[in-house]
């Protein structure tokens, strides 16, 4: 449980980070909060040639408001966003989901962008980003580009980030009027990885449901305002569509059942926020 050897760069500017990323051709990993990277290093699931510490770069931990919503920059810690004034009003889904991200102790160090970069299928922040229709801002020496969250997550711990790119920020659109939001999660203990989690976004005409922890990437579906057995049927169909797996925490059957039950609970809760 000790990391394999690596070189370490203490970057003082974003330009330095981008230089090293370009030079190392996929052999560099970015260290911000370290709450996902350090376990990967210690378990030797990641063996980068160089680790780039961005923790000393000034101004990377901002919360900004832009046209596309709340912008969390690369070094913004999860605890800082959770404590952001007005978050419950502007981003009720994030306010509900953030307390489920790891523990108090890991949220104090872990970053929003780090969790998105890590792309664990059970992670709450990628799920919220997909559910809210957010986007990821990537930067490299070649320039900047923006990728929609639904296109960013490409597989198990895999993303559309290119080798020389760093996540500069992610943006979460603000809550819309006459829209209800709800988040539900099931794990063995609070703070454990989700066995399944659900984010529901409901308007008078539509239901959007996003599911984490079941398939390789957060899955999002949009339905009309189904009710009763039609909603049950849609949830059941979704549960079977997703590629649920067996692992030591839960079998496929439990995961499918959680999609149905948590889905129903979250959609009901989000609907109640409408009135």
């Amino acid at each position: 449980m000790k990391p394999a050897p690596f070189d370490y760069v203490r970057a003082e500017s974003l330009d330095e980070v981008l230089d090293v990323l370009a030079a190392e051709q996929g052999e560099a990993r970015i260290l911000a909060g370290g709450q996902s990277l350090l376990p990967m290093l210690s378990m030797r699931l990641a063996r980068p040639r160089v680790v780039i510490d961005v923790g000393r770069i000034r101004g990377l931990d901002a919360v900004e408001t832009a046209k596309d919503g709340l912008v969390a920059t690369a070094g913004l810690r999860q605890a800082t966003l959770l404590a952001h004034p007005g978050l419950e009003r502007t981003h009720p889904l994030l306010a509900a989901a953030l307390p489920w991200v790891g523990h108090v102790q890991t949220r104090a160090r872990g970053t929003i962008c780090g969790s998105v970069a890590h792309a664990d299928p059970s992670a709450e922040l990628p799920l919220c980003l997909v559910a809210l229709g957010g986007s990821v801002r990537l930067i490299s020496k070649r320039g900047r580009r923006r990728v929609e969250a639904r296109d960013f997550f490409t597989g198990l711990m895999s993303t559309g980030r290119r080798e020389d790119e760093m996540i500069e920020a992610v943006s979460f659109p603000e809550a819309k009027r006459e829209t209800g939001y709800a988040f539900r999660e099931f794990g063995r203990r609070h703070g454990d990885f989700a066995i399944a989690s659900v984010a529901a976004v409901v308007t008078t005409k539509t239901i959007e449901i996003s599911v984490g922890g079941v398939d390789d990437v957060p899955a999002r579906r949009a339905w009309p305002r189904l009710e009763g057995s039609a909603l049950d049927d849609a949830l059941n169909a979704l549960a079977w569509e997703l590629d649920a797996r067996d692992d030591i925490h839960a079998d496929q059957r439990l995961r499918r059942d959680l999609v149905r039950s948590l889905g129903r609970i979250a959609i009901t809760e989000a609907s109640q926020c409408l009135v």
Partner: peptide, 26 residues
């Protein structure tokens, strides 16, 4: 040694932190 058990929790700059999820050079 991967941030789950909490035994190594310390305070860095006044904030709770897992010392096993922090490099010494940090």
């Amino acid at each position: 040694e991967h941030g789950v058990c909490g035994a190594c929790t310390i305070r860095i700059g006044g904030t709770m932190a897992r010392s096993c999820l922090t490099l010494a050079v940090q």
